[in-house]
């Protein structure tokens, strides 16, 4: 499958400082791709380079195989985006704002505008001036302008910012639907890690302008698990585990013993303990959350 978006060794220098170091990644149709990183890591700069707002010092950004630098107009017509806050013309109505963007792309009809308005649930207020909108309504209008021209790549910077829990859930479900049913590639950046975990298929973690890692949420749950064993007597149990799994990482914890092992191995370990007459009171799987993984990868000493 050809990637929808391809970043090839993208680098950005501002003055003598390198802001982004040789970033390469691919986003495919039908997936929601998360963009994570502490403040100032270069997320927004990367997004700005993808949509052509900032020049690229070296490397290449390809959208549907078309270079954003060499053929901007052709490459960008498949992209819908919100870059940072959805800033609109406040003295115009929501509808006039959409009309403004509709005129800039060929083939966006009045019917399409109405359709998008309905989609984001703004029918009642669309003819009011944007200055009377709440942040959540502006966010919805921002999403509407990004979807107007039926893009194949959607880039959303903090799309749930300012929405209430119901709104967040609605947008999340809608984005997942767009990816699964209409095959859009969606890039989302957010500082709400739990949010990202529920929304994304894969995510990239960026720090100091470098790609720290790309992981899929699926892989994350399959990774070696931490299991908390509540056993008695502890000393004896430790010997049993060390004998059975000599290479395993075992740490005695306050509540019991913490071990890292694959999901499938849990019953075997349990059997080994029981056969040695150790009392097993509980086996608790501690799944690694995106947050932990994020802190682990970025060193954990910076605010997201």
């Amino acid at each position: 499958m050809n990637p929808l978006l391809q970043l090839k060794n993208v680098r950005k220098d501002i003055g003598k400082k390198t802001i982004i170091h040789d970033l390469s990644l691919e986003v495919f149709a039908g997936e929601v791709f998360g963009f994570l990183g502490p403040n100032g890591a270069g997320k927004t700069t990367t997004i700005r380079m993808i949509v052509g707002l900032m020049g690229i010092t070296s490397g290449e950004v390809l959208i549907n195989g078309i270079s954003i630098q060499k053929d901007f107009e052709k490459a960008i017509q498949h992209v819908g985006a919100i870059v940072e806050n959805p800033e609109m013309y406040k003295f115009l109505t929501g509808y006039q704002n959409l009309l403004h963007y509709a005129r800039m792309t060929k083939g966006v009809t009045k019917e399409r505008i109405d359709e998008v308005v309905q989609l984001v649930g703004l029918e009642k207020r669309i003819h009011d001036k944007v200055k009377t909108y709440s942040l959540g309504m502006r966010q919805r209008l921002g999403l509407a302008q990004a979807l107007l021209h039926r893009p194949s790549l959607l880039i959303l910077d903090e799309p749930t910012n300012g929405l209430d829990p119901a709104g967040i859930r609605e947008i999340r479900d809608y984005l997942r639907k767009l990816a699964k049913e209409e095959g859009l590639g969606i890039i989302v950046s957010s500082h709400l890690l739990s949010e990202m975990e529920m929304m994304c298929d894969r995510f990239a973690i960026i720090q100091h302008g470098r790609l720290v890692g790309i992981e899929s949420v699926q892989e994350l749950s399959k990774q070696a698990q931490k299991v908390l064993l509540t056993v008695e007597p502890v000393e004896q149990a430790l010997t049993v585990i060390k004998n059975a799994y000599p290479h395993m990482n075992v740490t005695p914890a306050k509540q019991g013993i913490e071990v890292s092992l694959d999901y499938e191995e849990i019953p075997n370990l349990n059997a080994a303990l029981v056969s040695e007459h150790i009392k097993v009171y509980g086996i608790q799987v501690l799944t690694k959350s995106l947050e932990e993984r994020f802190l682990e990868m970025t060193g954990g000493n910076e605010i997201v």
Partner: peptide, 14 residues
């Protein structure tokens, strides 16, 4: 100053 330049320049118009 409105910040609208970002949405204006990511359209198929040079």
């Amino acid at each position: 100053s409105w910040g609208t330049i970002k949405l204006l320049l990511i359209r198929p118009a040079s």
